[in-house]
């Protein structure tokens, strides 16, 4: 035990210091929450369960979670379930017969705009997820994740796809699970750590720790016999060779040039699925059908 503590004293001290700093910072920063700046929103409601897929307890639980998450990330988070055809509304919005795939997007954008959502300002930062349980004329049920403001800036096509996948995964358990996944995933993606790009993925930390441990163990096991303490110059008179000729003569050079292909949508690009709603506001997002 004495040997153990003595051996790891450096680690124990570092961990203690880091823990102290971490807890200290958490205490200091904890109260720093986003304050909602938009007073034009027509409602304080966030969960619109028109399709009645959630029990009252579930709705309340989601409201609590949304309220908490909104303060953390500074975005409005809206959830709508529907159980009706959205065709009529879409056609009216477009002024012509809209594509069946567009109904849900038009509905989501309009819902957000009509209620004047937006955390920082009207039509500002936020996201809405609309889940329509009604089977449209083609026999499919449509869903849509729509983004605005900084959420739109943040979400690339890949992230939108991932978000939808996370929601669908939850749906195989229960509607509640799906909507909870939506709020939590949004909280994760919009968290300060994720936004600053400083967040190190957990698996990298685990891998690095594993690698260092493996090297440490291997080195100690290998060195169990003893360490080599001779180098190439150990038996060289004067400690270094006599260099009779050292010549590096430049012969020729050639340059090749290639065009770098810029990748789109990838990385931290964001702004996936951008378009302008009939109200004249920018939205991003994506959805699908089942």
């Amino acid at each position: 035990m004495k040997q153990y503590i003595h051996y790891f004293r450096f680690f124990l001290i570092v961990i203690a210091v880091l823990l102290f700093v971490f807890l200290g910072l958490r205490l200091l920063v904890k109260n720093e929450e986003f304050i909602r700046m938009n007073d034009q929103t027509l409602t304080t409601e966030r969960v619109f369960d028109y399709a009645d897929k959630l029990s009252d307890e579930e709705e309340n639980a989601l409201r609590e979670l949304i309220k908490e998450t909104e303060r953390k990330i500074g975005c409005d988070i809206v959830l709508v379930t529907e159980n009706k055809s959205l065709k009529e509304q879409a056609d009216k919005d477009r002024g012509y017969e809209a594509y069946i795939e567009d109904y849900i997007m038009i509905y989501a954008d309009n819902f957000y705009d009509n209620q004047i959502f937006g955390f920082d300002k009207p039509y500002g930062d936020g996201a809405i997820f609309v889940d329509n349980w009604f089977r449209e004329a083609d026999g499919y049920q449509y869903y849509w994740f729509s983004t605005s403001g900084k959420v739109m800036d943040r979400y690339s096509n890949e992230m939108i796809e991932h978000m939808n996948q996370v929601i669908l995964d939850g749906l195989s358990v229960s509607p509640y699970q799906a909507y909870e996944n939506y709020v939590k995933q949004l909280g994760k993606d919009m968290s300060a750590g994720a936004l600053s790009g400083l967040s190190i993925p957990s698996y990298i930390i685990v891998l690095v720790a594993l690698l260092i441990t493996a090297i440490y163990t291997a080195v100690f096991l290998i060195q169990n016999n003893g360490r080599k303490t001779t180098v190439a110059t150990t038996y060289v008179n004067g400690g270094k060779p006599n260099l009779n000729q050292v010549q590096d003569i430049f012969l020729t050079k050639h340059i090749t040039t290639r065009v770098i292909e810029t990748s789109s949508g990838g990385g931290r690009q964001g702004g996936g699925g951008g378009h302008i709603s009939s109200g004249g506001h920018s939205h991003g997002g994506g959805g699908g059908r089942r």
């Binding site: 060289v236 006599n242 010549q247 003569i249 430049f250 090749t256 770098i260």
Partner: peptide, 25 residues
């Protein structure tokens, strides 16, 4: 801009050295 240039320079390397080893055990 969006171009990447690679310059490869070729050198002729010549070395001649004398090493005086003393009592290799």
């Amino acid at each position: 801009g969006n171009k990447e240039h690679t310059e490869t320079s070729i050198y002729s390397i010549q070395r001649n050295m004398t090493i005086d080893f003393d009592k290799i055990p």
